[in-house]
Design a protein around this nucleic acid. Structure first.
Lengths: 109, 109
DNA sequence: GTGTCATATTCTCGTCAAGGAATATATTGG
DNA sequence: CCAATATATTCCTTGACGAGAATATGACAC
């Protein structure tokens, strides 16, 4: 998993932008107005999100319409799934760990 | 969704720690040795992860065994699912957006 | 071309966070 | 209580990053 993806989402304004774009594509100005963030900051945040491939842009007339990309979210989904698949065995792992400690103790005796 | 969760994961060393703990609980020293990170930094990263409720600690003998918590991963999973549910309609949304632009153009005429 | 709207970039500044080194705080065993 | 091990915390320095203001770039209309 890329830390870049999480880093991009780990900033309040950027997460707000992402959750806003969840409802559909928007232009830079619409994002700025809706979230009450100044346009330059929006552009900067969108740049970070674009570098993380979380958003993409499509120029339409004079505007640049940003929309979410599917891939990063699919990656995150698969990543958390890979954890949750092990979840059922987590307590077993803890048990195993405690047992290994117990074994070491026995070896030392 | 909390930005705190993503912020905690958006740091390379911390993501490495999380992916290491994916294999099972470990003590601070074991994490430090495995990842070749100095112990104080490991403790500091674990503190951030614990504040984000991504890990929890269980003291055993002289050690403190850290393990992953399920909840944040479930939250992330639900969050990305909520996006992917809308994924099928993303192109429709783009269409709708373009249509709304077209309507505005018509209004102006 | 000029002007205008929409967006991107640059600059500076302040803040925050990560790493290193040293030290403090348990916890356990004698 | 003292020593030793394991972990946490503090202080310091440095680099990264976000916000603001100003400016630059780009696309379109005339």
């Amino acid at each position: 998993m890329k830390t870049e993806t999480f880093r991009a989402l780990g900033e309040p304004s950027r997460l707000r932008i992402v959750e806003l774009l969840r409802n559909g594509p928007l232009s830079v100005g619409e994002i700025a107005d809706t979230l009450a963030i100044r346009q330059p900051q929006v552009s900067k945040h969108l740049r970070v999100l674009a570098e993380a491939a979380i958003v993409a842009v499509e120029p339409i007339e004079r505007r640049r319409i940003y929309h979410l990309e599917a891939e990063p979210f699919e990656e995150i989904g698969e990543w958390v799934d890979s954890f949750e698949r092990l979840w059922s065995t987590r307590l077993d792992s803890l048990d195993a760990y405690l047992n290994s400690l117990a074994e070491k103790r026995n070896e030392d005796e």
